[in-house]
Design a protein around this nucleic acid. Structure first.
Lengths: 331, 331
DNA sequence: TCACGGGCCGTGAAGGTTCACGGTAGAGAC
DNA sequence: GTCTCTACCGTGAACCTTCACGGCCCGTGA
């Protein structure tokens, strides 16, 4: 209801011209004190607020905006990335818009987001076609998978070698019966569970020394704890477990404590992510640390390259971030 | 360098009119397949991308945007609020923009943010005048303090009674020598340390049973741990400690473990926030839980009221959120 | 032959603001 | 009395896209 109140309405109300209203609103020169006050009063009376679109259109602000889409903001891993992205974006004069893909209306949110930003970055599992549809041809930086389609850039984490390294270190310490707790989020996207790449890399790394894999119901602390307990119940001889991520690994540590299982004495636990929270528990969590800051800075680099190229369709840019084995106490 | 490439450039390149370009770009009817392809090619060649400002200006999208300013995205408390805010915003069709105030260029970031949003919400310590300056008359929802200036709304947490309740519960369990670890973030804003309201409320609640207060250097786990250790060193007889927030309380639990201090046997530890992380440590953290979801929904309520009122200067709206004592194992 | 309709495309206007420039009035200088 | 200067204010244009509408051409049916 109600048309928008424009600068012309204010001008009429105050008995002046558009330009004078502009001068009053933006604290410019060439206006008398009394007139400014009169205009300001009129604006206040009418509830006038300049249209940010019209203003940005004419001032041609070079503030670019970046849309960040993550699956969940309950996981410190993603919020860490967001935090790094945010501080980097502020330095470079970029704006950060947020959207979560764990909600029901993921696609709709993406549609609205894409109308407001210059680049879309995030962890996407959807195929490029759907994504391109939703983003209307905007450049996309994928933080999960590498794609070769033009307009789809990526920052990729080399977890495969990280997992290999971790398994090697576990073997050095005598572990030889490996288990894993995998995430089941693929169910949401594909309808049925599909093994994550992490699981495939892990299974390849441990070979025939695998005792079993349990898929967690929920991607959080308690989900990880339950799955860990289930894994030990099914395969009591397991002596080393890779948890899909640190959040679940935290649950595993807690679960082990509740079950009276010695960590790392009888079972070694390794997480993935490198959250600082891992230091808060006892024993402190051993983890395959992902360089989240590197992800953020690489992403912003790509965004800036795209901005320099006027967001034209340029060759896909791919960056890789390495992992680091953070050997703490739980393994 | 380089002017922006507009729809007219594409039209010229393809030998058609603006409208035809629009039809091609937006998958509209009334255009032949060959023409569409020709236009798309031309757009691709020139690197054309529609101006989101011009588009939003004319389509008059009713997608309002909310700018969230928090002090740090390293603290789960704030990211929880952001998460709740985000899911609520998605439901209501709002857009969420982020800015952090812990960086150096806080004011500049706020300036740029305010050019893109309809409402600014956040934890502000700056006086209203500066804030109004930076926000250019945008409505502000303060999540920390209550203000009576028009245009400044608030969602306020009634921590005072929460602290009173917690102290009472501690007394019931025999505690009578109270200590506290306060946050020193006020140093950054005001130049020197100023006691936080939490400290004042706590001191009022414990009266002459106060052993001492230590101000933490950093608002994080290790900062809390250090301050806690320092508190015990100075006042070894302390039997109950209120930590400024849960993050610091996590550090206190860890620190106590390292010092060989029994929790809650010899010292009871209480945090503030109600983070789910508190369940991950042993003993699980007792805490004064803040209803972050309530904060988010109340904030969005206010934002919607403002949007309905066309963001006119209406009477300040104030909401209050109560706390809940979450008695777990550390106290 | 004419009327009609559908497929394809172009023109004027609108959307709300700011920029660049031009104009007026009054004060002071000569 | 004329000129200049300053303080204040208004008008046309620009920013870039979409909407509403109108025009053209060709095929079909009567």
């Amino acid at each position: 209801m109600g048309k928008r109140v424009t600068i012309l309405d204010v001008a009429a109300e105050a008995g002046v011209s558009r330009q004078t209203v502009t001068r009053a609103m933006n604290d410019m020169a060439d206006i008398s004190v009394s007139t400014r006050q009169r205009v300001l009063d009129a604006a206040d009376r009418l509830g006038y607020r300049p249209s940010r679109f019209a203003r940005n259109l004419v001032t041609r602000q070079k503030t670019n905006a970046l849309g960040l889409v993550v699956s969940s903001f309950r996981n410190p891993y993603y919020t860490d990335i967001a935090a790094d992205m945010l501080s980097g974006a502020a330095e470079r004069g970029w704006q950060l818009l947020l959207a979560a893909s764990d909600g029901d209306e993921g696609s709709d949110a993406l549609n609205k987001l894409s109308a407001q930003v210059d680049v879309v970055v995030g962890h996407f599992q959807a195929p490029e076609a759907d994504l391109g549809e939703a983003c209307r041809g905007l450049p996309v930086v994928n933080l999960e998978f590498v794609s070769t389609v033009p307009g789809f850039h990526s920052v990729h984490v080399d977890l495969e070698s990280g997992i290999l390294e971790a398994v090697g270190a576990l073997r050095e310490r005598g572990a030889h019966r490996f288990g894993m707790v995998d995430a089941g989020y693929s169910r949401r996207t594909f309808g049925a569970y599909e093994p994550t790449p992490r699981r495939e890399w892990f299974e390849r790394a441990v070979g025939d020394q695998l005792t079993g894999v349990v898929v967690a119901d929920e991607d959080n602390i308690s989900g990880g704890g339950q799955a860990f307990a289930e894994l030990l119940r099914r395969h009591p001889d397991t002596d080393a477990v890779l948890m899909f991520n640190d959040l679940m690994a935290l649950g595993a540590v807690r679960s082990a404590h509740a079950l009276g299982v010695d960590v790392p004495g009888s079972v070694r636990i390794v997480g993935v992510d490198g959250l600082s929270l891992g230091e808060a528990v006892d024993p402190q969590l051993t983890t395959i640390s992902i360089d989240r800051e590197g992800i953020a800075s690489n992403t912003l680099d790509i965004a800036e390259i795209l901005a320099k190229a006027d967001f034209a369709r340029i060759e896909p840019i791919h960056r890789t971030v390495r992992t680091q084995l953070l050997w703490r106490a739980s393994a």
